[in-house]
Write a protein that binds this DNA or RNA. Structure first.
Lengths: 248, 248
DNA sequence: CGATTCATTATGCCTATACATTAACGTTTA
DNA sequence: TAAACGTTAATGTATAGGCATAATGAATCG
């Protein structure tokens, strides 16, 4: 699992890895001054552009800070951060080695209520599609999904039955590049979700709420995913975001 | 709040933003072929290095894929992903505008049990420091922290009282650059945490477990943070990670 | 007719150079 | 002594070109 790339790839990568290593291992503590470009140039016997590119990348990744005339310095880590991937539910179930299925419980087209407009970040009236789904891993309820789709943004959704493809996956195909905001909470299950998930009322559930916007910041969809608490686990990895991604 | 940078900054940024926009808005769908470097060169009346740099950055951010001879293509989004920042608890409380405090409830040095060695990813016997803390926002319990520190990795921890600085912050100062793995769950509070958080047994709590490793992948610490479920909310942002960060 | 070779094309990576911008520092001047 | 000024070391941005590599298609040869 540990970086077992045989050829040390490009000069770029080598310099970048070297410096990154020094920082990650703590050999260069926060505040440490990184050799100036001309020194690195001599050290690696390369041109300035090359080292500059490397340092720029590191700066983008916020591992170093660059100050004109003074030089570059190892920056102080901002706080604990992680890259959290919330996969498609189908993928998630598949990863457990269980057969996946889902059912649409409810589907209505209507005007958004005041509260819903708030969630979607709208002032005006909008027409939305409300969908409720249940996702199953084998026979077992895996997740309860409550979704609102902004029909102004995705009018085709009105005609879709969502029998083949679940709303989430369908939307991802249709509007591939989106910005999203997530809120993750633990709550006690209220009556409806408890029943649908086959758990007791008040049992702990993990709730993930996501508002998805297109780049122009029009809200596309709002979704609330409710997972039985003790069954499900969100896994996130990494603190310092990887800069050079060599082997996938 | 929306990007109100007056001068369109560098040529770099402009090209990058242009292309990014086209992808994010969906004008260029996944699979779309991006103009070859020579075309972009002509289009922006600049040198090849400049466009190459831009495309390289986009490739790093995984928004495009580059194939020799074939050209560059808009890549398919992998799945929903987000950048989740789990801040320092002190910062978190401060953000709520509440006075922060914490207390050390328990602190023992001992050998790690088999189960704990598992958590830390150790085969051999190791000596650990076990600490339990309670974090408060005002008078209200905010978070219950259970922590193990690997004393082989951070021997100084044995002498530390953790009265000034909470263990999390203390460690971050000491071993600044780390990799971490997070697991997030919703569970019912068991007796001890319920009592300490002033909630009922079985009430929903948000549990975040984190194993922190240094770059050489030696485990530094394992921590379990338990938050009262309905009070606390984890917020995560962004799907496509931002490439160009202009205004800090 | 099929296999090999070869040129073309487009990316990947690097060098060398240039000028712009900034900020720290030292020197001069009021 | 302090403000004003110039110098210079560092980064920031860009140009122009080079060789390497991989895929594709066309030309050539057995």
């Amino acid at each position: 699992m540990s970086d077992s790339s045989p050829q040390p790839q490009s000069l770029h990568q080598r310099i970048l890895n070297d410096i990154q290593q020094l920082i990650l291992t703590g050999a260069w503590q926060p505040g440490h001054k990184i050799p100036v470009e001309h020194e690195l140039m001599k050290q690696y016997n390369c041109s300035r552009m090359t080292v500059s590119k490397v340092l720029t990348q590191l700066a983008h990744a916020r591992m170093i800070e660059r100050r004109r005339k003074s030089g570059s310095f190892v920056s102080r880590p901002h706080s604990q951060s992680a890259v959290l991937t919330i996969p498609d539910i189908k993928t998630e179930v598949a990863a457990l080695g269980m057969p996946y299925s889902f059912e649409v419980l409810h589907k209505v087209r209507r005007r958004a209520s005041a509260e819903e407009r708030e969630l979607l970040g709208f002032e005006r009236a909008v027409s939305v599609l409300e969908i409720e789904c249940r996702h199953l891993a084998g026979e077992r309820p895996f997740c309860f999904e409550q979704r609102l789709i902004n029909l102004e943004a995705v009018p085709e959704a009105a005609k879709e039955t969502f029998e083949e493809t679940a709303p989430g996956a369908w939307l991802l195909q249709r509007v591939p590049w989106t910005l999203a905001e997530h809120r993750i909470r633990a709550t006690g299950a209220e009556a409806r979700s408890a029943k649908l998930l086959g758990i007791e009322r008040g049992a702990a559930v993990l709730t993930i709420e996501r508002t998805t916007r297109s780049a122009q910041s029009t809200a596309i969809t709002f979704v609330r995913l409710i997972y039985p608490g003790d069954q499900h686990e969100l896994v996130a990895t990494f603190s310092p975001e990887r800069v050079g991604r060599s082997a996938q």
